[in-house]
Structure formats: C-alpha cells, structure tokens
Nucleic acid binder design. Structure first.
Lengths: 249, 249
DNA sequence: TATGGTTGTCTACATAAATAGACATTTCAG
DNA sequence: CTGAAATGTCTATTTATGTAGACAACCATA
C-alpha cells in the first residue's frame, strides 16, 4: 500500500512511445501531485535517471520536452526549476461563463476570434439544438489563452440568423456572454455538458501549441436562454495539461 | 473549411511517439466520429497507408494495436472490421450513482473490490471532507468493468470508522450505494467533481489493461449525506477511450 | 474454378531512439 | 579561491522503428 512510488514500476519498451516521453509524462504528473516538495527544484538529472532506470541523456530529453512546455527550466550549475504546479480550474455549472470562469487564476486572459460564418444545420446540430434540419446557423471559432499560452479552442454554433451579429460583438468584447447580451440574450444557462478526453489531432496540436501525444479535454455543451430555448452548441477543446474542469452540482 | 480531413495534415516525426501509435490515435478518433461510414469495415491497409503517407507495415502496426484494444478485428482475405464505435456515457449530477450510471449500455457490468483498509486523514482529505487531521477513515479500492473490459479504477475514502463495514457490504453487493444503505445512509448527493485528463501511469496501465500513452479521465468527487455532512471522497480513473462523462445541470 | 482484392509473413536496409563514457561550463558553499 | 555538484555538449555504439519489396494465404464473386 503506497510504497512511496519511486522506482517500483517499470517503463514499457517498444510500446510506440519513446522512453523520454513516458518519463516526461511521469515527471509532469509527479510535479502536479507535488511529489518533489515545495522547494521549487527538481531532483538532479542523475538521480532521476537512477529512479527511472535509464540513462541520463534519456532524462535530459524528457526535461527538455517539459521545458518547451514551460513547465520547468534548467539552469546550468544550479539545477532544474519547477515553474508551475497546478492546472487552472475551469468551473462548469448552470451558470458557466467562459470568460469569467478563469478570472483571478492568471494575469492576462484573452479570447480571440479565429473566424465565423454560416452553415445549414446538419442532423446532429439540428437534433442537439431542437431546430429543423437545414436551419441557417451562425458559427464562431475562438481561441482562448492565459498569459500568452493557448488554453482552449472552441467551435460555437448559434441556433439561427438572429445571432448573426454575435461574432462581430465577440470580436469587440472578447466575451460570448457580452456578445449575447448585445443581441438581447441577457441570461442563459448550461443544459448539459459531455466530457471526452482524447489525443490531440495534428491541426489541434498547432493551434494550441502542443506536441504529439498531448491530451485534450473536449466538452460538448448546450446552452439555453431564459425561456429554455436552446440557442448555442459549443465544442471546446482544452489543453488537458493546463486545465482541469470543476463541476458544481 | 472542413476539407474532408483526409491526408491534409502530416504526422510528426521524432516527437517521441512512434508513427504507428500516432496513426492508431487518429484511426481511433476517426472511428469514433464515424468517418468510415456504417459499413462496419475499415478501408484497406494500402488505402490507409496512402492516406497517412506511410508504409503499409506502419499502418499494420497501428491496426494491430487497435485490435489488441478490441476496437477492430482483421480477417485475412476480407478486410478489417470495426467492432465498436461509441464510448459508454457516464452521467454526473447531484444523484450520481456509480453502478446505475452505466445500466443498459453494456451487457454485464461488474464491480470488484481490490482491497480496503484504514488511514488517518492527511491534510488534503481532512480539508476535503471537513474533518480533523488524523481522523481515522475507511478506504476502499475498486475496479469496474463492462463485458469483461476494465473501465474504471476508484479509490474511496469514507469519513470515519462508522463506515468500517462499507467494504464488506460492497464485496457482497458490488455497489457503493447499496453498501452505504446497509450502514444507514439511505441517500447521498454529489457536491462537486473535479475532472482532469492525463496519461496513465504504469500501475494504472496494468490495472485497466491499457497500453503506454493511454489517457485517463480522472474525477475527484465529494459526496454528502442527506444532512449535508461530507461522507465520501472518491478518486476515479476512467479509461478515456471507453468512457465519456455526461454532466447534467 | 479462375481472378482480383485483401490480410499475413518474410527478408533486407535506412533512420531514429537509447546507452555509454568523457569532459566542459556554471553555480554555490566553504 | 577551491572544490563539489549540477547542467551542457560531444562522440561512438547498440537497439528499436520505419521503409521497401516480394510473395503466400485467404475470401468473395463472376
């Protein structure tokens, strides 16, 4: 029962995942659960190499990967510093507000419009939003980040052309809540949220500045206005290394 | 916008993830979103090789990995069949019930006790459950699965020795709800749930029968009894390939 | 039963990842 | 200022991954 973790469990070879990447994953996790104490420093490379039963160069590759994620930083002669420990916490509930959810957890939080357009509702969107197939909908593609680091990539669909100005307002205010208010939706509530975790696909890797093997938390959410009419369907992909979801019930 | 996916985006080399594993991840995703139609068959290996711009042998490695997950099955002379498409959906809400959540989505759903014991509450558990540090708590380790495939691995902590018989009842009935009822907790509600996605660690790989690089959905949940007293803290690790979470608000 | 299309297996070679060792460079403590 | 301890860099070698081609085995269908 809980033998201090340590070396106990081995790494898998010829599993299609390079040892240095497996080690990077384990170190990232160890940092997240605070296994290296609160000195803010990593153990020396030789010590890590011994712990994982690999060569020092292999550990160095792992640390280099974590450094490029901005998680650690090595200084010659001193050691390797841990730059951050906790994920940002993104709340989900009846009143989920994208831009407000992360307030206070980072310095600069910014949302950006990547594009927008119109589509005719397909079967899936029509059923999800409770509208006839073929209804013209407004789409909005957004990118969210904190302190210059991308955090989320979302695709929104709004249930009708009366939302045509939402992208325009979003570009101005950087907030969906505000943009909806501008078109007369003073209040809205979250009906349901599906959560899936999966590997990021190549296009998502570049948009969120991730490396292959990275994990996404994907949420599929439906929002309704004050009268219960479903007005918005959003598919948001969070960088799982940087975000956790918090569900209040 | 949406150019049929296809070959467009390249695979990343020397990224620490073998090509065949990247391809396996992409094929798994493609199956999940129904990209191969509903014939139930995969495209021929040569066609996939062309699509991903790799050798046929590399695609075969990817398909072999998916076959060992039970996702596809190759038959010589005929082709490769898709065995399942959708993830099981696990609901989260005020009345989240572990064993009932998955009813009707699979044939045989079974929960198993891996072990139990007692611990003195550390700082984290004490704060989460609102009890003094050092309070003696009951622990329970469980494994859940459907149709013989492991789905979830959970660690439960119950806030006091009055729950000492819960593991015993769980072993008998295979249900936490039922075990709590046996000790006088007729009703309980979910207070909050944190959701994190991360790579599985080696011990988790073996317990859930996963391969390196596999993804876990980890939920950290607090339950309270009818009077609002926090009685249970659970850390559950779901195999992300097999489960999605559904949050009702 | 003949044919085309599919998966299965084998060999050979090229490229990338991991190991091993040596030594340089920097920082900090004494 | 010196030495211990840490990261940075280089070369060489072994092992794993990816490519290439050929052909066998099998299935469905004409």
């Amino acid at each position: 029962m809980g033998t201090k973790t340590a070396s106990g469990n081995l790494l898998e070879r010829r599993a299609g995942v390079a040892l240095w990447r497996q080690i990077a994953d384990r170190i990232r996790h160890a940092i997240n659960i605070g296994e290296f104490g609160d000195s803010g420093m990593m153990p020396p490379e030789m010590q890590l190499a011994e712990r994982f039963g690999v060569n020092r160069h292999t550990v160095r590759n792992a640390l280099a990967a974590l450094a490029s994620e901005g998680l650690v930083q090595a200084v010659q002669g001193r050691g390797t510093m841990i730059l951050r420990r906790d994920r940002l916490s993104y709340p989900i509930g009846k009143r989920t507000r994208f831009s407000e959810g992360l307030q206070g957890q980072a310095e600069r939080i910014a949302f950006q419009c990547l594009g927008h357009g119109r589509v005719a509702a397909g079967a899936e969107i029509a059923e999800t939003l409770g509208i006839p197939v073929g209804t013209e909908c407004i789409t909005l593609e957004t990118l969210g980040g904190a302190d210059g680091v991308p955090l989320s990539r979302a695709s929104h669909v709004f249930a009708g052309v009366e939302f045509a100005d939402v992208p325009h307002h979003f570009e101005r205010y950087g907030s969906i809540t505000r943009a909806l208010a501008e078109v007369g939706i003073a209040d809205y509530t979250r009906l349901s949220t599906d959560v899936v975790a999966r590997h990021a696909q190549p296009d998502e890797l570049s948009e969120l500045k991730l490396s292959p093997g990275a994990i996404l938390l994907e949420t599929l959410a439906v929002n309704a206005d004050g009268s219960g009419r479903r007005i918005q369907y959003s598919r948001t992909r969070f960088s799982a290394d940087r975000i956790k979801l918090r569900i209040e019930t």
